[in-house]
Amino acid sequence: MDLPFLYETFLSLVAAVPLTLQLAASAIGLGAFLALGLALCRLSGILPLDWFARAYIFAFRGTPLLVQIFLIYYGLGQFREVRHSMFWVVLRDPYWCAVIALMLNTAAYSAEIIRGGLLSVPFGQIEAARACGMSRFMTFRRIALPLAIRQALPGYSNEMISMVKATSLASIITIMEVTGVAAKLISETYRAIEVFVVAGAIYLAINFILTRLVALAEYQLSPHLRQPAALPSTSTGAAR
């Protein structure tokens, strides 16, 4: 076991962790809004919106993420109109292309998760909100969405983990996040196993912390499912 080499590898890989986290966080954060929009399109009952969302989800779930990244990073540059438009500042930057591709991809998967969550809200809750005189928007904001988020959280945490793993594909379009640095180290030193072990441990640690955070959020969001804290005991209190 070559500990100094492992330590050095660890140091250079850890330096790339912020970039990996940044990619994952921006993709998940932006993707969540898009996913909510798509889920609402699916549930709107308006046919054109419904079909648009269906087609989007079908296309993005049916093709490899790497193809989507290439399509955005290399493909769009083919058109003179794109190269001369104001979007070119964003689209020629590999970082933003990776964020856009990851965001569009995760939105397709998350939309179905969120749709499932929204469908799982019992109608009685909506009915009760209406009976209280809440408007449609307020019912959605105060009742349907929070309950849906609680329901969708376990499925959504899977999607978040696969997004953290998917950020590794950004290394193929020259972004030096953890996998990018690892690939560079492997091709420089040809010590694939050592580098792999260190990089793998870093990803595992990130994903472990992520699952713990989601579990914490789940706990916070479901006070109604917990055993109530033991009431001040009533049997012994009878002495009063």
Partner: peptide, 10 residues
């Protein structure tokens, strides 16, 4: 828990 790409590199 680790990316597939890393396994392919390995």
């Amino acid at each position: 828990g680790i990316p597939d790409l890393l396994v392919i590199y390995l």
